[in-house]
Design a protein around this nucleic acid. Structure first.
Lengths: 230, 230
DNA sequence: CGCTGTGAATTATTTCACAGCA
DNA sequence: TGCTGTGAAATAATTCACAGCG
């Protein structure tokens, strides 16, 4: 399906990249592409780490999982490193995406897909609401949820984005998985139970806000718990 | 940097909750509220853990940071535990929120705020585009970005959501922090540099999709990298 | 010389397993 | 009896610190 790293890289021990590292690769890639646009050709781990907001040792350790990509005493070649990380995170392939749930969030995601990166293609939109079915969003027609399996078969998405209400999410996920989807981005505020070979990433706005609220509440509490303020 | 607060720990040792635990509290809370609606009064760590998708020992450890909230041999009182966690994540307070950047994503977030939870109030919307300024979204009028400080002072948000393009995000963050904001939810695909006492949570759609793409690519690679298949 | 790549040490998080209490 | 709360062990992630190479 995708041709593997047949390019210049002689070293490619992509044995097992730790999850924490995988999560940071996109950030590295973005910083590198920024540098590339600015015409920067070489970058040290310290410089790149600072741009991304991590420690340089962590960056070097992360990159070491992908192989020996730098030059001692010099640093990393910006374009080459960008290409290598890009290949890792699938930037050299196209990823068809289906969005299930065409509410405010679903529409925003559908529209964002094109803007974000050029490797993700919106291929299908599904919703249950009769007044949405048939409408066109981001160039794609909304199809009735009853025809989900049919649409998946016809358009072949590899990634699904769920933006339905929480109550519907599990059922939608089950049907997507049964239809062959293995990668799901879940915006519904619920935990999805799926088979082990299915990857689910959750994005939960309420959770994020609550975490911020926790810190806010804590900040307030910290002023005056152990030490009376002077 | 943070001083050690080793205190006696009688019943409410909210000394230091680990970040990983804080991130899970909202999920526990949501599951508890679901149970409460269903009329369930008691729940064991095993049951609750399963609903959230974590190990029961992890759940118990997490809750132990908040104090001794269960009853041995019985379990946890659903309402009581919900109240306790709710208090921790600020569910018992109101949190005014400002949204900067009223594009597709910003509008979706503004509208979602009301739907998600009842403790977050949209108090201000700011954007730079002249055709957006003056329009009303989710009951709030969009104000020009030049008047950001003024709007913050007038409406007193505690939390800011940044949904501007990446290029504008750092400047917006700087101005928000200068205006007194300490908690930021950043949807812009860039790393924000802020002072230590400011909490930034990042939600990055492109990153999530790339992580999924990484796994998809890996799945494909795993079937047939070492061995050519016919 | 200056930087990468990485063993070793450190720190954080999760899991095991069971004592102890309602 | 059946569950919580938690020491102790296991695992994962990060940081230190420096050998080694261009």
């Amino acid at each position: 399906m995708t041709d593997e790293n047949l390019r210049g890289a002689a070293t490619a021990p992509t044995g097992h990249v730790p999850p924490a590292t995988v999560e940071r690769l996109p950030a590295y890639l973005r910083a590198l592409l920024d540098l590339e646009v600015q015409g920067v050709r070489q970058v040290s781990s310290t410089e790149l780490a600072e741009a991304v907001g991590v420690q340089s040792a962590l960056l070097r350790r992360d990159l070491s999982w992908l192989g020996s990509l730098g030059t001692r005493g010099v640093g990393y070649d910006v374009s080459q490193l960008a290409r290598e990380i890009g290949a890792q995170v699938g930037q050299d392939s196209r990823w068809p995406v289906i969005v299930v749930g065409v509410g405010a969030l679903g529409r925003a995601m559908a529209r964002h897909l094109g803007a974000l990166d050029r490797n993700f293609d919106l291929v299908a939109l599904v919703d249950r609401a009769p007044d949405l079915v048939g409408r066109t969003v981001a160039g794609v027609e909304v199809v009735d949820q009853d025809r989900l399996e049919e649409v998946v078969a016809a358009t072949g998405p590899r990634i699904a984005i769920i933006t339905t209400p929480a109550a519907a999410a599990q059922q939608v996920a089950d049907r997507l998985v049964a239809a062959g989807i293995r990668s799901i981005l879940n915006f519904a505020p619920t935990t999805l139970a799926v088979a082990d070979d299915v990857t689910v990433r959750r994005v939960d706005l309420a959770q994020e806000l609550h975490v911020l609220a926790f810190h806010e509440a804590h900040r307030a509490a910290d002023r005056g718990v152990g030490t009376e303020k002077s």
